[in-house]
Amino acid sequence: MNNSVFFGALTVAGLAAGAAAAGTLDDVKARDQLNCGVSTGLVGFSAPNANGEWEGFDIAVCRAVAAAVLGDPNKVEYVPTTGKTRFTALASGEIDMLARNTTWTFSRDVDLKFEFAGVNYYDGQGFMIPKELGVSSAKELDFATVCIQTGTTTELNLADFFRANNITYEPVPIETNAEARQQYLANACDVYTTDASGLAATRATFDDPGNHVILPEIISKEPLGPLVRHGDNEWGDVVRWTLNALVGAEELGITSANLAEKAAGTENPEINRLLGTEGNLGEMLGLDADWAQNALSAGGNYGEIFAKNIGEDTPVGLARGLNAQWTDGGLLYAPPFR
């Protein structure tokens, strides 16, 4: 008797968990729109262009997920969030996912109850200063005033770094990157610290970027990536494997230029499984067979997205570095599509 009650309770719990997990994917399909949390504006990563259209490296992830699920990369509502508001927006269901240069940490994963879907940019925290200060190392920043975004890992890393090096600083708290840029250029702070990619993106918007130096020290690990709510496993799989599809396609040599040709069928079984001409990966995700084709048609593979938005030929000017494929000495590695 006790056993049957126990198993009955398990079944109810299982059904409840199943209902919760199915929620977001069903909601997005029913709404016919993805609500994607992004930054308030970081050039190259997520910012509105001159026509008011959002674009950038993180925006490309939102677009790829919308294309995979809804067949159209334009079916996205972008919700700007700050370092402080982003987690509340996700936890409350205001957004379906967050794609906003957010660092994967233990407490965010475990204590805040989010699920990181992977890493789309391996980063680290750096420091930017006016060249005229003549400082060549972050360890020379004793008594500096530092612009810092509240509610970020940057805040904690900064305190750790200065304490470890027995130097002091005065924080100038700011909410958004735009505010940091304004305060820094107005000399309200000597230093701006955030992820090195964010510093490069911000510097690219200056009238005289050459007058500002990003110091050599990288003081932290900042694996940045998209995230969803805990218990949202089915939706988490969709976001995770869409990101993996962008990364895996680059390794497999699938580009926006040859996508149609590869989608007609190839000699490589993994390409065929990814693009839906063999197997049933789409069905496993609750999506159409051509989900990955749709995701890749939104903006190309990972390398194309990187080059277009933040690569060395853009004003942001970032080298691939750690974000090269594992086959080229980087950390990018998509699990097998099988």
Rank of each mutant, 00 (worst) to 15 (best):
N272V: 07
Q183F: 14
R108V: 08
A50C: 02
L332R: 09
F306M: 01
I129W: 06
D26N: 11
F143Y: 01
A334N: 12
P48K: 05
T145A: 00
P315M: 01
A249V: 14
G126W: 00
R273L: 12
A117N: 11
L224K: 07
A186H: 02
T11F: 11
C147N: 11
T168M: 03
D142F: 09
F114R: 14
G231M: 15
L98E: 11
F162I: 01
A186G: 12
G56Y: 05
T40A: 08
S297I: 02
A50R: 10
N233F: 13
M284N: 12
T266Q: 04
A16Q: 06
A66K: 08
A245I: 04
N294V: 03
N211W: 02
G134W: 01
R108S: 14
A89D: 07
A245V: 06
D142Y: 06
L332Q: 12
E261I: 02
V146G: 00
E251A: 09
E250D: 13
E267A: 06
A159S: 11
A138W: 01
L156I: 10
G299I: 10
E53W: 08
D195A: 09
F161T: 03
A164D: 10
K113P: 15
T255K: 04
T82N: 03
G18I: 14
A20F: 15
I218D: 01
A260I: 03
G126Q: 04
T242W: 12
R320V: 01
V38R: 03
Q325R: 02
P336Y: 13
V5Q: 15
T205E: 07
A17M: 15
N233K: 15
T82Y: 12
